[in-house]
Design a protein around this nucleic acid. Structure first.
Lengths: 153, 153
DNA sequence: TATGAAAGTTTTAAATA
DNA sequence: TATTTAAAACTTTCATA
């Protein structure tokens, strides 16, 4: 389901990733085209689901979210029912910003953003009371060196 | 440097996180206010750096970025000079979407998004040739269960 | 806080290369 | 077929009540 894009499409996406707030005219100038063609390309990429919703990046620290944990989870349960409940628990908890199922020893990794260590503990207790997990390791972030959703187009 | 926000500010931020493309009128209706006050609040929050740049979320899979690794790094080097070079290497590589310095046994965690396993290996070889690291474990994501930058305001 | 008018932007449509 | 021009609809921005 990979879509064919030309160099102009890629430049447009790169600009939108950098700043989705700029006007069509500005983008058009930067990619060496004009408003209408740029608008049509963006519309097509949106329809194809390549470009999704716009969002605003908030400063987590300034909003009081001062703790970020990476959580490594091992489980002994591998039945469909257990997995369905576990995934539902992750999806419904807003503290969980990322959740991946992994290959290898460790089964899942989560990125959890909370106000403080106490809030993490509350999250942890709630999670393990909902679904049984074998082993949990929490890695506490001391410093966010880099954080971006931009893809290197 | 935490800023005081009221319930309306929070609702506005929540709406902007959900969809930054909607108009002021729509946001105003949803938060039970009108255009001008909403606009003033957004401007203030931008000036305070609480609300940052707008971006568009792209579909990594559709763009051919089919591999995502979490990389756990242990190092024996803890000198300022080594660290400065290491951080610079991470910041300058666009495959690195997240990088955190951790407390405890493991020193750093990275989230690395690449087209395929070969591209990951190229990244890995380049990184270890630039800076010496003691131990590297790569966790391969099989499935992205959840991915959001939204904070639970 | 609300109203409204000026400036700017997006979107659609028609004309042109 | 793709691009440019042009015009309508809508949004943002800001002055004033």
């Amino acid at each position: 389901m990979t879509v064919r894009l030309d160099a102009t499409d890629r430049k447009i996406l790169a600009e939108l990733q950098r700043d989705a707030g700029q006007s069509l005219d500005e983008i058009a100038k930067k990619v060496g085209s004009s408003k209408t063609p740029v608008w049509n390309r963006i519309r097509k990429m949106r329809e194809a689901g390549i470009a999704g919703p716009q969002t605003v990046v908030l400063d987590a620290e300034k909003l009081g979210f001062e703790a970020c944990f990476f959580v490594l989870i091992r489980t002994s349960e591998h039945e469909a029912d257990w997995q369905a409940r576990f995934l539902e628990a992750l999806r419904s908890r807003p503290e969980v910003q990322e959740a991946h199922r992994l290959a290898g020893e460790i089964d899942y990794i989560l990125k959890v953003r909370v106000k403080n260590a106490r809030a993490y503990d509350a999250f942890y207790q709630a999670l393990i009371s909902e679904v049984k997990v074998h082993n949990v390791t929490a890695l506490l972030s001391m410093e966010e060196i880099k954080s971006t959703t931009a893809l290197p187009l």
